[in-house]
């Protein structure tokens, strides 16, 4: 293939340095022995120990995890349905409104979403807690799921579904036996996206969580407002590490599948 011009190399290098230096500094300084985060005083893992002994953080992490699993699962079901409607629904009353409600939450400032949901929950007298956070997170992350899934559905060869119908499958069977297994990777990435969005969210959770439920980002927020703290660095490192492992593993798995498929295809071509 063509080689990159110097300009391209420079813009890529600078861009990635910009993207990764801040995280690298976080990770390095989470192993700093000093409480002063900008002065290096030797290697230490004491902040990790303190983090694991901090009950409040562990509680918040547990709440966050529960919210994320439940909301991303519901969001995946609803988002997949919405994607199917968007791509295959044809014309129906209020289609423009529907697609508007799918795309708007992607970019809607969180303060607005959070405020409006809170006022709704108070208006209907719903007690704030884990349930309200789940409802709020499901609402905005289902839109992300539906965008991911619909981009896969758009390229889905429709004749596969027609073939299933032609062979006598009901519409539901055609979806269950043919469409779903084939779009499964997109549905899974949609779930993962919803999951991380929920793990991450500070603003909407701050509005919709009551005094009874505090999520991890809310906990982080209340301590970083007071400035940089090594404990938060340690927590960030753990989160960055988990995400990195997850993303790298996923992309390796995809790559292996692609290589295997290419090999199969070559073998088939030779056999022909």
């Amino acid at each position: 293939m063509n080689r990159l011009s110097p300009f391209n190399v420079v813009s890529l290098t600078l861009g990635f340095v910009f993207l990764y230096i801040p995280m690298l500094i976080l990770v390095v300084y989470s192993f700093n022995a000093s409480k002063l985060v900008t002065v290096w005083a030797g290697f230490s893992t004491q902040w990790y120990g303190e983090l694991l002994r901090n009950e409040a953080f562990l509680d918040a992490a547990w709440v966050t995890l529960r919210v994320a699993v439940i909301s991303s699962t519901i969001a995946t079901v609803l988002g997949t349905m919405a994607a199917y409607v968007l791509v295959r629904g044809g014309r129906f009353f209020g289609r423009t409104l529907f697609s508007g409600m799918i795309y708007a939450p992607l970019v809607m400032p969180e303060v607005i979403t959070g405020l409006s949901l809170l006022l709704l929950f108070i208006g209907i007298g719903l007690d704030r807690g884990v349930l309200t956070i789940v409802l709020a997170h499901t609402t905005f992350s289902m839109c992300f799921v539906s965008v991911v899934v619909s981009s896969r559905l758009v390229t889905f060869d429709r004749s596969l579904e027609e073939a299933a119908l032609d062979l006598g499958a009901s519409a539901f069977d055609a979806f269950r036996l043919v469409t779903l297994p084939i779009i499964a990777p997109a549905v899974i990435s949609g779930w993962l996206l919803a999951f991380t969005l929920s793990l991450d969210d500070l603003v909407i959770a701050s509005f919709t969580a009551g005094p009874s439920a505090t999520t991890l980002p809310m906990k982080i927020w209340s301590s970083v407002r007071l400035g940089v703290s090594p404990e938060i660095n340690a927590l960030s490192t753990i989160l960055i590490g988990l995400v990195t492992i997850g993303v790298v593993a996923a992309s390796l798995a995809t790559k292996r599948a692609a290589v295997q498929a290419a090999r199969d295809e070559q073998a088939a071509a030779r056999a022909a």
Partner: peptide, 24 residues
Amino acid sequence: LMLVILPFWTSFLIRVYAWVGILS
């Protein structure tokens, strides 16, 4: 592509927070 997407999956709050220590 993965290098661009990776920060996208990591916590927004943490990424903003990282700059506090850099810019102070």
